[in-house]
């Protein structure tokens, strides 16, 4: 079942002074399956926020279609099944946390008795139960973000859309948000969140999409892709004879001798096992074996960086 389907989505903005059109989202295709956690990665200015605003009906697409659970995304009934946390949210600072969540619950038509229970439970879940009666004016950035999370979950949404939920948070705050996302997945909800923080995405997502200049340049199952493209390992050994070193050197992509230790980059074709046996037979010591998975970061850099260099070259050409 598809939770969200975006087809040929295009969004142009008019620059206010020159009135020239800028294409920020450029024929985006995206499919989020029900129950998965999808990381929407991209460098700053790639168009992540614009895409999420289009999906949530804050912006009107120039062209293309957005369907949530098979229906038009502007459908009011469909909106009742979605939760959204905007980027750097700001909320009514004259309300207390409790009043604030109660107000949003009313926007979903939730009955008073249910509202009270839900608000309590959510405040607890995001760790703000003790601050329930405090006005939001007194809330720090981290607390506002937690409350934003609570606001996005007030209708127990099937699809949760979060724009940079971890940005601007300290490590504890990031961990808490991460834990909430993992819990949401466990509850069977679909989570679609944008980020430029690679480790967070890598840790908790099933799939990622990398957005560059308003297009999805990569959409892949995270685990599969990383295994597939990561054949090599780093092997560190010591105390081997000259002869074994030569065999090691021949089987490795390259070797580095550092004092008593030898570091070898071994291809992922079964050579590692062979070499381990060899070193042990020689009475040598194996210090570590680290499989060299291609990290998301290197994928990210490969996808996003050519664009950056291209544009900087353009700049150079122009002047």
């Amino acid at each position: 079942m598809v939770a969200l389907k975006v087809e040929n989505l295009v969004k142009d903005f008019k620059r206010s002074i020159t009135l020239r059109k800028v294409r920020v989202v450029d024929g985006l295709n995206l499919e989020i399956r029900q129950g998965e956690t999808f990381g929407f990665l991209g460098p700053n200015g790639a168009g992540k926020t614009t895409t999420l605003k289009l999906i949530n009906g804050l912006l009107h697409p120039t062209s293309g279609s957005i369907r949530i659970f098979g229906q038009d995304h502007r459908n009011v009934a469909v909106k009742g099944r979605v939760g959204f946390l905007p980027e750097n949210p700001y909320f009514y600072d004259y309300l207390t946390a409790e009043e604030f969540l109660d107000f949003y619950a009313q926007l979903f038509g939730i009955r008073r008795a249910d509202r009270r229970v839900r608000v309590r439970r959510l405040l607890e879940r995001v760790g703000l139960a003790a601050r329930a009666a405090e006005p939001l004016r007194k809330f720090s950035k981290g607390m506002t973000q937690r409350l934003g999370m609570a606001q996005a979950l007030i209708n127990e949404p099937e699809l949760v859309i979060l724009d940079e939920p971890m940005s601007g948070l300290d490590p504890i705050g990031r961990r808490d948000v991460r834990n909430i996302i993992v819990e949401l997945k466990r509850e069977g909800r679909t989570v679609f969140f944008s980020s430029h923080l690679i480790p967070d995405v890598e840790m908790i997502c099933d799939r990622v999409g990398i957005l560059v200049s308003g297009r999805l340049s990569e959409q892949a199952d995270l685990h599969q892709r990383l295994e597939m493209t990561s054949p090599a390992s780093d092997l560190r050994v010591s105390g081997i004879s000259e002869e074994t070193f030569e065999r090691l050197d021949a089987l490795s992509i390259r070797t580095v001798v550092r004092g008593p230790e030898i570091l070898a980059e071994v291809p992922g074709d079964g050579s590692v096992e062979k070499l381990i046996d060899l070193v042990r037979a020689d009475g040598g010591r194996i210090i570590s074996i680290v499989p060299k998975r291609e990290s998301l970061e290197s994928i990210f850099l490969r996808e996003a960086a050519p664009e950056c260099t291209e544009s900087s070259e353009l700049e150079v050409d122009r002047f």
């Binding site: 949530n56 009011v76 009742g80 979605v82 009514y92 926007l107």
Partner: peptide, 10 residues
């Protein structure tokens, strides 16, 4: 931008 969270609700 408080309207963001209102308009995205039903």
């Amino acid at each position: 931008r408080t309207i963001f969270t209102i308009v995205s609700k039903p």
